[in-house]
Amino acid sequence: MDIGYLYIVISPCRSSRNHCVRCENLSFRDEKPNLWKEPKFMALLVFLFIPFILSAQSIKPENPIQFKIKNAGITVDGTISDWEVEVDFDPKKLAQSSIRGKANPESIQTGIKLRDKHLHGREYFHIQKFPFISLESKSFQSKGKNTFVGIFELQIRDVKREVEIPFTLSQTGKQQKFKGEFVIDRLDFGIGEKSLVLSDEVRVIIEF
């Protein structure tokens, strides 16, 4: 079952539980009380995990995802405005950091309504079958002060591919601002077909 963002919240609990299943087995031999059945223990666990959970911030960015594609020699600017991102990024703990995002392609806008409707269709995003585009970090590398490269898994339609996204971070107090830009080949993701006028390459700009 795809539970989306809930996964982030639940997974630490699940991993703890796995661990404690072993404990439980041990305790069975020792005939110790089952802590998992103790409400107080559960409350303590939740309390202990709250800061951890809160560290993954959920953001509904103000700026839409932007994209640019050449059509008949003209650059078409488009946006996807409905998207969310979960960030747990510490430049000093890159191995523990993560960024996950989900975007709703139904919110795509290119300035021509009928074109947007066409992009919803099965030849492009096929929103009825694939209502989300997702992006999930795999690893990060520092490339200098406030400059990073992330390897992400990007899923559009039913195609998952790794993409490398260089991005910058500007941090004011606790507030983090990310900006990244990358290029994909729309045909890699089954977005439309080869065209004499529409380029394959799409430049994507993400800022939050």
């Binding site: 059509n71 008949a72 078409v76 021509i112 074109r115 065209s195 004499l196 006028v197």
Partner: peptide, 15 residues
Amino acid sequence: IIFAEQGCVTCHTPP
């Protein structure tokens, strides 16, 4: 240019 900007090329694709 207007023809391209207006997206006419999507359906009425050259050549």
